[in-house]
Design a binder for these strands. Sequence first.
RNA 1: GCGAGAGUGGCGAAACUGGCAGACGCGCCGGACUUAGGAUCCGGUGGGCCGACAAAGCCCUUGGGGGUUCGACUCCCCCCUCUCGCACCA
Length: 857
Amino acid sequence: MSSDRYPFREIETKWQKIWEDRKQFRVTEDPSRPKFYCLEMFPYPSGRIHMGHVRVYAIGDLLARYKWMRGFNVLHPMGWDAFGLPAENAAIEHGVHPAIWTHENIDNMRAQLRKMGISYDWDRELATCDPSYYRWEQLVFIKMLERGLAYRRRSTVNWCPSCQTVLANEQVEDGRCWRCDSEVTPREIDGWFFKITAYADELLAWCDRLPGWPERVLTMQRNWIGRSEGAEFDLPVAGRPGLRLRVFTTRPDTGFGMTYAVLAPEHPLVDELVGDARERAAVAAFRAEVARESEIERLAADRPKRGLRLSARVVNPFNEAEIPLFIADYVLMGYGTGAIMAVPGEDQRDWDFARAHGLAIIETVTRPPGWVGEAYTGEGVKRNSGFLDGLTIAAAKRRAIDWLVARGLGEAKVNYRLRDWGISRQRYWGAPIPVLYCEACGMVPEAEANLPVVLPRDVQLSGKGGSPLADAASFVHARCPTCGGRARRETDTMDTFVESSWYFLRYCSPHHETGMFDRAAVEYWMPVDQYIGGIEHAVLHLLYARFYTKVLRDLGLARVDEPFTALLSQGMVIKDGAKMSKSKGNVVDPDDLIRTFGADTARLFSLFAAPPEKDLDWNDHGVEGASRFLNRVWRFVLAHADELRGAPSVPAPAADGGPSGGTPRPAPAADGGPSGGRLAPPTSTDQGRAFRRTIHETIVRVTDDLEHDFHFNTAISAVMELVNALYAFEAASLDRVPAGERVALLREAVETVLLLLGPFCPHVTEELWGLLGHAESLFARPWPVADPEALRKQEVTVVVQVDGRVRGRLVVDVDAAEDRVRQLALGDDKVQPWVAARTVEKVVVVPNRLVNIVTRT
RNA sequence: GCGAGAGUGGCGAAACUGGCAGACGCGCCGGACUUAGGAUCCGGUGGGCCGACAAAGCCCUUGGGGGUUCGACUCCCCCCUCUCGCACCA
C-alpha cells in the first residue's frame, strides 16, 4: 500500500539533517530587518507528543516559515516546561528521580519534534528545571518581596488531596483540580502569594488594547478579573456603641431598601455578636452544616439559601431603621467585606432569602408599567428613598456615596473577583522559594550572591504529604544571609506557572549569564508577534504571563507592557466525536502517523481538515487524502523533471513587498535555476493565458488566506485546485500551446505550487525544488508575488437572473458598459421566455457579476 | 441564570464589504489502465419532479418562523438546539 508513495522517509530525514547542519533557522538580532517572533506554547515533557502538539506546532511552523519567506527575521524557539507534578509522581511510582525522568522525556520528545521538521532555532532550547533558568526567577522573587509584590500569609486555600498541594484559584475548575480532577478541599495554611490584584486594573484595561487576541479569551479574562464599582460603608450594631459591620455594595442607591443584613458564616465579627451559650451553639451548628458541604455541592445552582438569624441587630444608616442580622451561606467571606446589606426589592438573591424568612421588601426603583417579577434590577426612577427620590439609579449612586462620605460612614470602593496568586506548592519538583527563617532575624530573603538556591538531588519522595524538602536536612539547615546564624530554608516550591510566565523573554537571550535576559535582545524581539496555544490557558497561563511581564517592567528589567501581540487559540483534536483519550481508545499516535505517511502529510492534514480555531475532527481517510495529494505533486514533478529543468525558472518577485503589507526580503536569492531565466512565460494562447491567470490567482488567494484570517484550510484547497489545473493543462495543452511556452508555464505552475506549499510541507517541497535544479533552499526564496499582468481578465461571465432566479449567463468584456450588458441580458435566448409574457419593471446591473431583471405581470 | 460562539450535503468544510450556495477534501457510484488493485487516471455525486437510460428543464434547500431588499448562509426581530466560559462575586 505504501509502496507507491513517494519516499517521504528518506526525504524527511535528509532535509531535517541538512537544515540542522546548516543551522538554517538560527537567528540573531538584525536591526536592518523586521523581526517576527513566532511562539507556540512550550510543552510539558510528558514523554510523548500527542496530536494536539502536532497541530499547534504545524501551525507555528507554517507561520514561521511563511514569515521567513516574506523577509522577516523570524525567532522561532522551543523549550520545556520541565517542572511539575507528573515527574514527581513518576518518581514515587517507579523510583526514578524526577530529574532523570524529565530529561529522558525531553530527549524523547525532542526527537519526535525533530521528525516533524519544524524550523526551530534549537540553539535557544531551554528547560525550566535548569538552575541557570530558575535562578533568575528567584532573583525576581526577592525583588518582588522587597516591593511587597510577593508576601506570605495564612489563609484558607484550595487543597488538592491527590496532588498533596495547594492550588491557585485559577487552577480550580468546578471545585476540582485542573490537573487531576480530584475534589478540592479548603485548608488553612501559610503560603506565598504574588500580588496580582495590584495589577487588576491594568490587566483589565489592556484587554481593550489587544486587538490580536480572540474576543472569547479577553472576555474570559475580564470576567475572571471581575471588577465591580460600588461603595463600602459601616452599619452600626444596635445597642453596641463602637461596634460596626462593614459592607460592600454595587448599589449604594438602594440603601433605603435595606431591610436586613447578612454576614458570611465564618465572618470574625460573628463571635463578638453572639449573645449567650444557646446562640453560640446554634452558630456553631450552622457553621458545621455549611462546612460539611463540599465546594461542589455549594456550587450547585438553585439550592435554597440557608441562614441563621442572630440576636444582634444593626442600624440602616439611611433611614435609621433597626433591622435584623443573619449569617447565611449565600454570602462569601472571600469577596468584598464578607458582609452585605440586603435589598430584596432590587436583588434576586436577597429576594429569595427574604421570602423564605418572612422579611420586609421595599421597592426603591419605580417599575415600568406592566412589569411583573420578583426583584427588579433594571433602570428606573428612585422612590421610597428619602433624599434620593426622583433621581436615576446612576445619579442616586453618586449622591448616596457623597452622603456616606460626608457622614464619615464609608466611601466609594472598587472590588475584584481576582484574588492574589497563591504560588506555594508543597512539592519537590519545582523552583525553591529563596527565603530563610532565621532564629534571630526572622524571615529573610536569600542573598543575591547565594543564588541560585538549587533544588537538592537527594530527597526521599513518598507522596505521603508535607513538603519533601522539609525532610532534606542538608537543604533545610542553612546560615542566615544577614546575621550568619542558624536558619531554616523555606521548603515550599513555586507554582510551575511562574516559570512559564517569562520563558518567552528568556528565549531572546537564552544563554545570558548575568541576568534574566539581555536587555537589547528583549528590546529587539519582544513582544511575541504571534502566540499559539490551547484555549485551556485562557485565564491561567495567559493571565499570569501578562502579570509577570508587567512586574518585570516595573522592576525596570524590560520595557514591555504586554507579552503577546496576537494570540491564536487552536481547537482540540478530536476523533469519533470525542477528545482523544486512552480510555476511549481513539488515540492517534503521531509516531505511527509519521511512520506511515510522513511528517508532511501529518502536518498537511492537521492544517487542512479544519480552520485552526475550531476543533479538528481526525479522520484516517482524510489523512490518506492529504497523502494522495502530495503524491500527486511528487509524481508530476518527477515525470516532468527533465523537461522542466530546461525551462526558465519562475521570476523571483521584485523586492518591494507583497500584496498585503508584508515587508521585503533584502535580496532575492540569486538562484534562478540552471537556465537562470527571469522572464515571465509567454502566453500567446487563450489556454496559456487562462492557466497563467489560475497560477497567479492562487498566489493571491493563498497569501490573503495566510495574511488575514489564518484560513489555512482554504489556502491548501487553493493549491489543490492549482494542482488539478496543472494536470488538466498538461493534458489539454499538448497540441494547442507552443512547446516552449507550454513547458515554461508548467514550470511556473510547479514552482509556484512548491513555494506556496513549502511552509505547509517543507520536506517534500524542498526535495522537489532541488529536483528542478535549484541549489539553494526553497526557504531562501521569497514568497511569490502575483503578476498583475497575469491577473488581468479580458472577459467575465455575468449571471442573468429574472426575479432573482438564474436563467442565463453572458460572457462579456471586463467592465463592459452597463447599457450594453443590460441589452445583451434582455435579448438572451435563455432569458427571453421568462420575460416575454411579463413587463420588465427594473433591471439591476452589478458590473462584472450579475444582471437581475425584475418583472411584474 | 449571565456572557461568548456555533447550527450549511452521507462526513470535514467553503462562500471577500448582501450578488451563481455547497469550492477543496473524504466517502460513495461509474468508467479507463491492469493478471490483479485497496495504486493511479477520468467522470458523476444536496433533495425532488424522475420512470429502463440519457439530455434538457423546472421546483425545493444554509436549525425554525417573520422582516428589510431587485436579490439574504450573510442584515434586523422572535424562537429552537448545541458547545464553551462564568456562576450565590453583593
